[in-house]
Design a protein around this nucleic acid. Structure first.
Lengths: 363, 363
DNA sequence: AGTCGTTTTTGGATGGGTCTAAATCTAGGC
DNA sequence: GCCTAGATTTAGACCCATCCAAAAACGACT
């Protein structure tokens, strides 16, 4: 037996792969026992546990999660699909996801659909082949609503994030965009604005619809029917173009709310281009409250949508769903908060530090 | 046999897991043959291939990459460790990595070390347990240089990105920061500046050292010895503080080069706070050329370090290394390019800037 | 018909864990 | 000293593909 031991150990050092079998031999127990020790089972006697642990250390064993996943049912991996990883908003969200997963020894695959349903589809299939335990999906624009049902058939838990498609009993984590826009409208009305425009997306997903809904209902609530709005793309350029179109109208708005911060930055540049000053000649409010809001000039008032926190919630929800695949579906919806800065004309803080926001937005 | 077939198929629909065995039975061939078809082996006869493919489609088979990885040696996965995923620079880099990997059917785990060597260590160990084929590592600040040797012992290919530690024969992809800073100095000298300051990191990694090196050597090359510089943190706040300290000196600099764009944005805000106009009272140059450079006011002149391209190169290098683990180590180093905008005072493009100035001086 | 070289196909071992049911060991009770 | 419930440990099947050596099929050529 000692000889057998030696041989094993020699093998191990040669190709660097020590297995349960090797540990078992070294510690003088069975493979099963070692497996139990590794999984911290309470069934193992303390003395045995220590003996095995010592062998594990001595041989430099590395757990093989792939092999474990093959027999067991969990891979301890998650798939994350976003549609624009270069967007700082998603950077923050991914950081939130990462923070939660690490605590649970999970790792996540990250892929970027670039808002292409076809790419998204390929990724999902690849994730499936890798047997991820769940998917966090920010659906690409134009995603077929039936996708969610398909994933269900695949028995692949899917948490939708920020946007959602398909029929309601689904898992979702996001922000209440409707309420966010409403807050922006309310604030602007308080400041005396009446002609408030909204520029936002034309695509049909939940996140767009919710914003429009918030805008229309808030305006109506204040008895302001003469809404003016524009359905555009979601880029900085779109904001730049849209604001100029709005200003060219016979009675231009005195304030504008934008679908996201990128568009708001574009709108501010557009105003400057026209010789106008954002926050004075026309108030501008963005959405997301990305880090850069504080360093634009004027600093941008924005509806904070807490990407880091959304990421955390989504990840937590995913872990709950993995633990209990048939549990009731959950929607975790965070409340946005209007972050008032200079661009809405409310005030102009004197010091940089006062309107600097912490690097990590956490509720 | 037909009965056996039926049973198999029933199993399949029940728990959604069709295996090679099922396909083999359905197509009337052996498991081995099916495996060959899946891997597009030229050994299989065309007729057989088609028959098998039909069965695969009919039964809705899903390839099990985990099982394949257990026997074979490749997992088709990569680990990516960055130190600040919320930073837009890394967002772009990750997008570049993702783009290359997808073409090769690879997926990557992404984790965020937050510049903590301990977290980084944990991640690397987890990646090892998942048997990733290679690691793309942006080493956290304070990483022990021996880490690279350790990874080598683990036989885990590691491509360092942007920063590097350890002894030279290693794989690396990054940008030539030294040359970047040199370009910035040269440009500023051409514009007539003599008192050029540099504010940058104090930590000891390659990326910091290279920048200092570039600064000192370029200054010396122009016969400008009276260098003034500050070693600070790398945040916006650090830039904000540093510029004010510099301006308080008896003979303040007329231009300042910053370690990254975040600091440059901070520095510009700092100048405004002092009632000065960036690009007029003091030139400011950043590094990285993140997207937001164009929308600051004034727009920021910056040394473009091409994060997307760096990500692509790193991923490609990783794939080469996986294919040939013992090949010669490579260093892929991209040349930066100075992106001249308004903040260095060289010119003020007509488009956005004409009206921007009055706006800033309003404080 | 027999031989030979290709081209295809295949059985069975293998990778490294987990799972289940059964075996073995305790200590306490009589 | 024997019996039993409870605590530990274990053997062996299993997960699902890949690998290798060997078998089978095929066609061409003596």
């Amino acid at each position: 037996m000692a000889k057998d031991n030696d041989k094993r150990q020699a093998d191990a050092t040669r190709d660097g792969s020590v297995t349960l079998q090797d540990i078992a031999a070294h510690a003088g127990v069975s493979r099963s026992t070692v497996s139990l020790v590794l999984r911290e089972s309470p069934l193992v006697a303390e003395r045995t546990r220590q003996k095995v642990q010592a062998s594990i250390k001595a041989l430099g064993y590395v757990y093989n999660r792939g092999a474990a996943a093959l027999r067991g049912s969990r891979t301890q991996t998650l798939g994350v699909v976003v549609y624009d990883i270069a967007n700082p908003f998603f950077g923050a969200m991914v950081a939130g996801i990462d923070a939660v997963l690490n605590r649970q020894n999970y790792v996540s695959f990250l892929t970027n659909s670039e808002d292409s349903p076809a790419r998204q589809q390929r990724f999902l299939e690849r994730m499936r082949e890798h047997r991820v335990d769940a998917i966090l999906l920010c659906p690409a624009e134009g995603t077929d609503p039936r996708l969610i049902a398909t994933l269900q058939e695949w028995r692949l838990p899917c948490i939708q994030v920020l946007r959602h498609v398909g029929q309601p009993p689904f898992d979702y984590a996001g922000t209440d965009f409707e309420q966010g826009v409403r807050q922006a409208v309310d604030h602007l009305v308080t400041l005396g604005h009446r002609r408030i425009a909204f520029i936002g997306g034309q695509a049909e997903h939940s996140a767009t619809r919710a914003r429009w809904q918030g805008y229309f209902s808030a305006m109506a609530g204040h008895g302001l029917d003469q809404t003016c709005c524009l359905r555009t793309g979601l880029t900085r350029q779109a904001g730049f173009d849209a604001i100029q179109a709005l200003m060219a109208e016979s009675s231009p708005p005195t304030a504008v709310i934008c679908h996201n911060d990128l568009m708001a930055f574009g709108a501010m540049l557009g105003l400057k281009r026209l010789g106008m000053t954002p926050g004075i000649d026309c108030a501008v409010v963005g959405t997301d409250d990305v880090e850069e809001t504080a360093l634009s000039d004027p600093s941008l008032t924005s509806v904070a949508t807490h990407p880091y926190a959304v990421g955390e919630e989504a990840a937590r929800l995913a872990l709950r769903r993995i633990a209990n695949p048939d549990g009731a579906r959950e929607q975790v919806i965070l409340s946005p908060r209007l972050q008032v800065r200079e661009s809405c004309g409310a005030h102009r803080p004197a010091a940089f530090s006062r309107h600097a926001k912490p690097l990590v937005t956490q509720d």
